[in-house]
Design a binder for these strands. Sequence first.
RNA 1: GGGGGGUUAGCUCAGCGGUAGAGCGCCUGCUUUACACGCAGGUGGUCGCAGGUUCGAUCCCUGCACCCCCCACCA
Length: 898
Amino acid sequence: MPENPVLSESGDSADSADSAASGESARKLPKTFEPGSFEERWYSVWESAGRFQPTGAPGSPRFVMVIPPPNVTGKLHIGHAYGRTIEDILARWKRMLGVRVLWVPGTDHAGIATQMVLERQLAKQGIDRRELGREKFIERVWAWKREAKDTIQAQMKRLGCSLDWTRERFTMDPDLSRAVRHVFVKLYEEGLIYRGRYVVNWCPRCETAVSDLEVIHRETDGSLYKIRYDVAGVADGATVATTRPETMLGDTALAIHPDDPRTTRLTGRTATLPIVGRQIPIIQDAILVNREFGTGVVKVTPAHDANDFATGQRHDLPAVVVIGGNGRMTAQAGEYAGLDRFEARKQIVARLTADGRLTSEPYRNSVGHCQRCDTVIEPYLSEQWFVKIAPLAEPAIRAVEEGTIKFVPESWTKTYFEWMRNIHDWCISRQLWWGHRIPAFTCPNGHVTVSEEDPSACPDCGGAPLVQDTDVLDTWFSSQLWPFSVFGWPERTPDFLDFYPTDVLVTGYDILFFWVARMIMAGLHFTGQAPFSTVHLHGLVRIGGEKMSKTKGNVIDPLEAIAEFGADAVRFTLASAASSGATVSVERGRMAGSRNFATKLWNAARFTLSSLEGHSVPADLEGRALSLPDRWILSRLSGAARNVNRHLNEFRFDEAAGAIYSFVWHELCDAYLEMVKPVLSGREGTDEARESARGVLSRCLLDSLALLHPFMPFLTEEIWDKATGRSGTLIVSPFPTGEALHNDPDAEHVIESVRALITRVRNYRGERGVSPTEPVELWVAPGSPDPELAARIRAVTPLLQHLGRIPELRFEVPPASAFRDVVAGLSIGLRVKEAASESGGARVEKVLAEIEQEYEGLSAKMRNSSFVDKAPAAIVEKTRRRLLELEERRAALSGGRS
RNA sequence: GGGGGGUUAGCUCAGCGGUAGAGCGCCUGCUUUACACGCAGGUGGUCGCAGGUUCGAUCCCUGCACCCCCCACCA
C-alpha cells in the first residue's frame, strides 16, 4: 500500500501490486479540473497492466463482444463514438462485476468504400487506377489502410474503449481471409453458391455489381414516356409506357396479357422496333403484364430489366445489351453508340417525338442510386456469383423465433422477420480490386475449379495454366464471419473454444440486414451456434434533431469534442442521450452539461478528500451509530446502485446515467454534503458522529466513483487514485450493487420531510422578498398522516436550523399571528421580522386556487360511487389522504393570511 | 404498394392507466470559504386533433392530420 492515501477502500479485491505509487506527489486534487491532464495517462496505465485482456480460467463466467469493425475509409464520427461508448460501458461494468471480459477490436477493409476513397485521392493527382494497375493500386490501398487503422485506433483509445488490442483483427488478415475462402468453398460445394448470367444492380461509375441492399431508392420527378410501335395489320400499332426510353434499343419483344380485351387484336403479331427497324414478336405473358396498368402493352428488354430478363427466359428471347458497364451506349445501340445513357435518352426522345411516336407526361417514381457514389443504378446483364440464401435464412429465422437470439429493443424482431422471410439471393461478386479475390479458377478448357488451395492444374482435364476469377467478394461476405473469424475459426483455436459464441452485439439498426442478419445466418450454418445471444440495436446520432451533414456544418468530430469537453463528458453525453428510439439527439449544450457534471464530481471529491485528510476514516460502517442524514444518504446510494444495475441490464444507458447523475449532484452534493458540513467542521456533533460521517462520506465517494466509472472512466480513476492510492485499480474494483442492508425507508421519510421544510422556509423568504440570510421563526406541530414525524424531526433540530437559517425553531402549535401552512403533513408556522413586502399574498392566492381546483377534482371522484367501488382500495385510500392534506393546507393557508 | 416510428415545457428529449419529468434556456436572489462549469428559489405544459374503452387516459383502441425511417421486380 502506498503511503498517504486519503482513504482506504472497503471490501477490496483489487491487487495493489502494480499501484504506481507516486510517493509524495500530490495526493491532493488540483483546484481546477483539466481532463486533458490525465486521460491519456490512465489509458496507458490500464493497457500496460493488461486490464483490457480477459483474466481467469477458461470456462469461468465471461462476457464477450466483438466491435462492429469500422471501415478503414478514414476516421470515426460521433456515431461510432456513441456505439463504442455503449460497448465500453457494458465492458467496464461487467469487468467490475467480476466476469472475464473480452472485447475484440478490429477494422473492416470495406471493399467498395475504401476503393472509392483511394480512387478519389488518385483523381486529385490526375491518376486513374487503371493506369496504375491492380497490383500497384492495391499496394496503395494497403498503405492507406495502415494509416486509417492507426487513426481509428487512436480515436478509440482517446475515447477510453477498453478493447483488447492484443487481439486486434482486420478482415483481410491472412487467417480471416482463410476463413472467407473456406466459407466460399464450403458453400460452393453445398450448392449454395452459384454463378450465372443475370440482370443485377450495376453502378456505372463504380463499374461493379452491387447487392439489392446497396441500392438506395429515392422518389424522383421524371417522365413517363409513351412510345408507339408499328404493328403490321394493326392501324394504330402498339403503344408502350416506359420511364427509360433509351432501353428500347434493346427490346426483343412486346408483351400483352392473354386475357386483356384491350390488346387482343395484337395477339400473335409482330411489331417493328422504331429507329432500329428490328422485327420483334408480340408475346403473351400473364406474369409480366398487369391488366390494370397502363396501355396493356409492355416492352421487353431482357438485358436491362430484371423482370424482362425473367420474361426473356420464359419465352426464350434474345438479350441485347445496349448500355455498357460504363454507362455508355454499346455498339449494339447503333448510331447512339458511345453516348452516355442519359444523353442517349434525350436524343432518342427527341427523335421519337419528331417521328410523332412519343408523348410524355410528368411522372414520379423511385429511382435506385448507388449507396456509395449516388450514381443512378443500371440493371445490367452480367456474369456474377450468388449465394442461395433461403436455406440459410430458415434456421436464422428459427433462432430468433425460439429466443436463442433476442433483439433489444424487441421491436426490431418484426423488421428482421419481415426481411428474412422475403429475402432474395445475394449477389456477392464485385468487379473491384480491393477485397477477397474469388477462389474460382478456370482452365484453358473452361473448367471451373473452386478450392481452398490454389490449384496448379485443372482437376478435370489437367489443363494449365489456370486463371483466377478477377472479381472480389462483397465486403459483407467477410464481415458476416467476424464473430468467429476473429478467433481464428475455422481452426478450433483456444480463443474460439473459450470465447465463441459471443454475448452481446451492439450496433446501429442501419446494418441490421447488411450485417446482423448475415452473421446470424453464417454463424448458425458454419459453427452450429448463434454468434451472440443479444443484439442491441441503437439509434443513429442526430445533432440537435438534424441529420449530421458536412454541408449543414453540424458535424461533431469526436476528437474535437473530447478536446473541448473531455472524453468523460463526451461519453456521458452519449450515454445520457441513448434512448430506445431510432434517433439519438446530441447537442453541444449537453456536452457542456456533462462537463459541468464532471467538474461537480471533481469538486465534491476535493471537498471530501480535504475533509477526510488526516482523520481516521472507518471503512466498515457495520455496527456504527449513524445519524439520520448518514442513513438517508446510504439508503439513497444503495437505491441508486440498484437502479444503475437494473438499467444497464436493460440497455437503458440514459436511465442508468440519469440515476447516478441525480444521486451525485442532487443528493450527495446538494443535500448530504451540506448536511454534514457542520459535523465535519466540528461545529456540531460528537467525535463519534464525525467519524461516522467521514466513513459514510468516504463510502459515498468511492461507490459513486465506481458507479460512474463505466461512464466516466478517466476522471473516476484519477480521483480514485488520489483517494485510495491504488493507482489504476478502479477499473477492476467491485461494482456496487446496492446492498438491501442500507435500504432505510424510515430515514428517507424523515430526511425528505426535513428537505421539504427547508425548501418551504426558503421560498417563504422568496415570497416575502427578503434576503436568504434573513432569520426566520419556524413552528412545527404534528400533523395527521404521521403523528411521530414532528418528534423525529425534532431529533435533528440543529440540522434544520443550519440549513434553513432558522434561529428560532419551536416544536409547538404555531400562533395565529404566524404565516401558516402544511408541509410534509406537518402543520407549520413561519414568521419573518422584517418583511420587505407582503408580496407573498398573491402567491398564496394562486396556491389556494390550485389547491381548490385539485380539491374539487378529487372530491368529485370520491363522490362518484363507481370510483369508490371499482378503483383499487390503495388508490381510493391515497385519494382520501390527499384530500385530507389539501383540506389541512387550505385551512392553514387561508387562516394565516391576515 | 407494404411495414415501422414519431407528434409531451422556448429548445433537445425521458415517461406511458391514478390530473406530468430532466438537461439546457428564462426570471429573482446569492462572494452560504468544494464547485459561478456554482448555490437557492421560481416561471413555464388543454401531453398533435376527433372519437372510443375504463371508476379514471398523456399512457390502451379506432380514425384523422403532419413529420421521419425502412422495405418493394411502381412497365
